[in-house]
Amino acid sequence: MSSSTPARRVPIEPQSVDAPLTDSAIFLVLEVVDAPEAHAVVRSALASVSDVSKNVAFRDLRASLSCTVGIGSDVWDAVTGLPRPAELHPFQPIIGAHHTAVSTPGDILLHIRSDRRDLCFELERQLLDVFGDAVRVVDETVGFRYFDNRDLLGFVDGTANPVGLALPAATVVGDEDPDAAGGAYVVIQKYVHPLDAWQELTTEQQEAIIGRKKADDVELDDAVDGQKSHKTLSTIEDDEGEHDILRDNMPFGSPGSGEFGTYFIGYARRLWVVEKMLQRMFIGDPPGLHDRLLDFSTPLTGSVFFAPSADLLDALDD
């Protein structure tokens, strides 16, 4: 090759951040045992996730099985030994006048998705066998598709997700942080809802809080001033335009135990976009006028992870 010929850039393969919405999902948050030998086991386990996933997925290739892995700030250095993504840090609590976005422990996130619940179960079982005693389960939540992608409050969830070329542009880190290129920031929050209180509202009151029509998901006009809807508060715009994130939220719960919830999971190219969205919700815009959806949605968890590129993840044990 001539010295004047530029080297061909090898494409970076992201993880399956853009996997399609599925009928079932498992959100598994793990804490790594504080021991050097545990870090080595976790490193090897993370590098094997793609192979284990392929082995389980082969049982039904039509079931869209995938597993996206996120690594938390507290273990990033010890587990990966790689440069830290520019924005990676623990979830910062947001304390509003009426509601608080809590911060909870979490070192590893496994976001398992499939149209078959049994495949999700089997992949989780095999992965936990690989991690062994090097981790403790902090939270395990099983999500499910509810009717036409609605949450348990009765509204369609994820309507504003980017599609086409806008999807990687909104979720995948690029040349702005070369060491983290191909990765994505992940924020999770587990919300529970008092459905009895929510159902006491009229449909019009619910729609005003959400900012969309309940039946057909049509957007309502933004408020010019005063109290803003959830749709408006969770939309981040500046001089560069609107900054999108990818939401892969899912309902969870158990009518028998009176638990009804939404598992929020947001993938973003820029962590600050999700953080600003949450600040607007919990503090208010203007401050004092918080997102009224929070009067019916209590966050139990809050964690930040970085989902490195598939290439980086596979090579962790090299």
Rank of each mutant, 00 (worst) to 15 (best):
L65Q: 03
V79G: 03
S16Y: 13
T159E: 11
H89P: 08
I12M: 03
A170V: 08
P90F: 02
R145N: 13
L123W: 00
V172M: 12
V32F: 03
E31W: 05
G288D: 00
N249A: 12
G302D: 08
P14N: 06
G226V: 14
D129I: 03
F260I: 00
I236W: 01
A25F: 03
F144Y: 13
F58K: 12
E31V: 15
G174P: 07
S44I: 00
T301A: 10
W198G: 01
I12R: 00
D51C: 09
T202N: 08
V52A: 10
L152D: 09
Y146T: 12
L312T: 14
H89K: 15
L233M: 10
T141S: 13
D177W: 04
V187P: 01
A180N: 02
A45K: 03
A134K: 05
V10I: 11
E176Y: 00
G106A: 11
A86K: 14
V137A: 09
A160Q: 15
I245A: 07
V304R: 02
P251D: 06
W76R: 03
A19L: 09
P93R: 13
I71A: 07
L46W: 04
T100V: 14
P83N: 11
N55Q: 14
P286R: 01
K228E: 03
D248Y: 14
D107K: 04
G164S: 10
